[in-house]
Amino acid sequence: MTDAGYEPSTLLVIGVDGGQTKTVTALATAEGDILASAVTGPCNHIHEPGGLERQYRTLRAGYEQVFANAGLPMRRLASVHLGLSGSGDRPTVERVYDTERLNLTSDPIIALSGAIPEMEGVIVIAGTGSAAFGRNAAGDEVITGGQGYYAGDEGGGSFIAQAAFRAIYQAADGRAPQTVMTERFLRHYGVDNLRALRNRIYGDLTRDQLAKAATLVGQAAAEGDGVAVSILRHAGHELGRLVVATLERLHWGDAPAPISPIGGVFRSGALVLEPMMETTHERFPQAYLQEARFEPVIGALLLALRALGRPIDEALLARLEATRHRIMYS
Rank of each mutant, 00 (worst) to 15 (best):
L27T: 04
N44K: 10
G50C: 04
T58G: 07
V24G: 01
H47I: 01
T40A: 13
I46R: 12
L35C: 08
K22P: 07
E53Q: 15
I34A: 00
C43W: 08
Y56P: 10
H45E: 14
E53Y: 01
I34Q: 02
P49F: 01
T40D: 12
E53I: 01
T58K: 08
T21S: 15
T29N: 00
A26H: 05
T40Y: 13
E48D: 14
T29Y: 03
T21L: 04
Y56D: 07
L59R: 05
G19Q: 05
A38Q: 11
A28M: 13
H47N: 12
I46M: 13
Y56A: 09
T58L: 07
A36L: 13
K22S: 15
E53D: 15
T21D: 02
G50A: 05
Q20R: 11
A36S: 15
L35I: 09
T29W: 00
P42R: 12
G41S: 06
E53P: 00
L59D: 10
R57T: 08
T23L: 02
E53N: 11
T25V: 15
H45I: 03
L27C: 05
T23S: 09
A36I: 12
N44R: 09
V39P: 03
P42N: 04
V24H: 07
G51H: 11
A38G: 09
V24L: 14
A30P: 00
A36Q: 10
A26R: 03
A38T: 10
E53T: 11
L52D: 08
P49V: 01
L35W: 12
H47G: 09
T58P: 08
L59T: 08
Q55E: 12
G19N: 05
L59Q: 05
